[in-house]
Design a protein around this nucleic acid. Sequence first.
DNA 1: GTATCTGCAAACCCTTTGCAATAAG
DNA 2: CTTATTGCAAAGGGTTTGCAGATAC
Lengths: 148, 148
Amino acid sequence: MNEMKSELEIFREFLKNKGMRYTPERETIIKEIFDTHDHFDVDSLYISMRQKDIRVSKASIYRLIPLLIEANLIEAVFFEGGQMYYEHIYGHEHHCHLRCINCGRIQEFADPRLRDIEQELADRFSYQIIRHKLEVTGLCPECRNRQD
Amino acid sequence: MNEMKSELEIFREFLKNKGMRYTPERETIIKEIFDTHDHFDVDSLYISMRQKDIRVSKASIYRLIPLLIEANLIEAVFFEGGQMYYEHIYGHEHHCHLRCINCGRIQEFADPRLRDIEQELADRFSYQIIRHKLEVTGLCPECRNRQD
DNA sequence: GTATCTGCAAACCCTTTGCAATAAG
DNA sequence: CTTATTGCAAAGGGTTTGCAGATAC
């Protein structure tokens, strides 16, 4: 029991509900995103697909991203150096990011207190909370020792 | 006692230490930023200055922002609709943002548990923490009732 | 006096979009 | 068959930059 649908199945249903089409291009992009265990930006995703001889246009990637976000399969995690970075979230526990401001290294972490904070904000300000994003920046052990 | 330096004094010293110059343009931009009690983006700051007949080029604003961030006078708070929003932080308690995804309304809040979380992350991962940014998104009371 | 700063306009770069050909359902 | 999607290339739009004149110090 507790069979979990794959991201492809989820997305296929999502598209069907919107009267949209499931195409090979969309499928290969999603596969590539979910095969990557890292955060990604459009350009590096595009390059990594080209290196594997998977031909899709950047426009198709750009057009797909808002759909994947709406379907709750990916999330924008941070904006850095003029571009947005995303990560796939389907099938993963929600987590936050501790990022080294010097080398870019990212440490993921989760903290149960954030749920409490969300709940209290909902009560206090009568908001319906959708999500939270906690980004902590600092210097990782290596960069700290190099005192950059 | 406990005389607090003004943002202008702080910045003047910051520039001096870097062998840079304190100009009337820089001064008027900082004044405008600190007179505004809201978050701002470059374009609206520029427009609001022009309306008061203060003439500075956008380029000067863009060139000033990284300096103000380095001097810890302002901070980038979120990226939305293709542009970055900032707020002045000097002289204010650190706080986080609860943002309505529908109308853009922002509720500020602070939570002491975030300091604890920072401290624990520092211990656990040996990072030297610089700052945190918690962004909570949801629907404000009004937008929630309109069920957008 | 000298090196920094300013304004302007052009360049940049990520992202979006119009269009004609293609393909999903 | 009909309507959505694709790739391409051009347009958009925020941000950066080269340059010549102005100006802090």
